[in-house]
């Protein structure tokens, strides 16, 4: 499966979805002009990956900012990951947040509340 590697810009996050190297990461800022267009290939990739996932998937969210339109897409991503979890493969979701950013921590807690997979909160900086 071909990896998706996208560099971060001022308004779009860095993406690394690499099954062969077992790296799954979204990082940086997410406030694209068109969220649906930006995330469509990522959601499609995850659909394909979910059909034959690795034994243990570790997915890292390391966002420093996301707008409300992105927050909906992040939930979509988490739901797709939930599917992997329900199929009996091991899944770890890590939600990284800067130590001084209470809102980002609360966002992680909120997602953990909504989806049925555990989300590990990881403080940094």
């Amino acid at each position: 499966m071909d990896p998706i590697i996208i560099s971060a810009t001022e308004d779009t996050p860095g993406i690394r979805l690499d099954a062969a190297n077992n790296i799954f990461e979204i990082s940086g800022r997410s406030l694209p002009e068109d969220v649906v267009k930006f995330y469509r290939p990522i959601l499609d990739w995850l659909d394909t990956y979910a059909q034959s996932p690795n034994e243990h998937t570790v997915f890292d969210f390391k966002l420093s900012y996301f707008n409300t339109a992105s927050s909906k897409i992040i939930l979509d991503i988490l739901m797709k990951l939930e599917g992997i979890h329900n199929d009996g493969k091991k899944l770890t979701i890590k939600w990284h947040y800067p130590s001084d950013d209470e809102d980002m921590m609360e966002a992680g807690e909120e997602y953990a509340d909504i989806v049925d997979v555990p989300i590990e909160l990881v403080e940094y900086g």
């Binding site: 649906v36 409300t68 339109a69 909906k72 897409i73 939930l75 909120e110 509340d113």
Partner: peptide, 26 residues
């Protein structure tokens, strides 16, 4: 507001303009 946000993020569909109706709440 937290309750409304959670309800909205679960139920809403992104419309063509890419909004989820969450902006004002947030």
């Amino acid at each position: 507001l937290n309750e409304l946000y959670k309800k909205q993020i679960k139920e809403s569909q992104l419309h063509e303009k890419g909004g989820a109706g969450l902006g004002f709440i947030d």
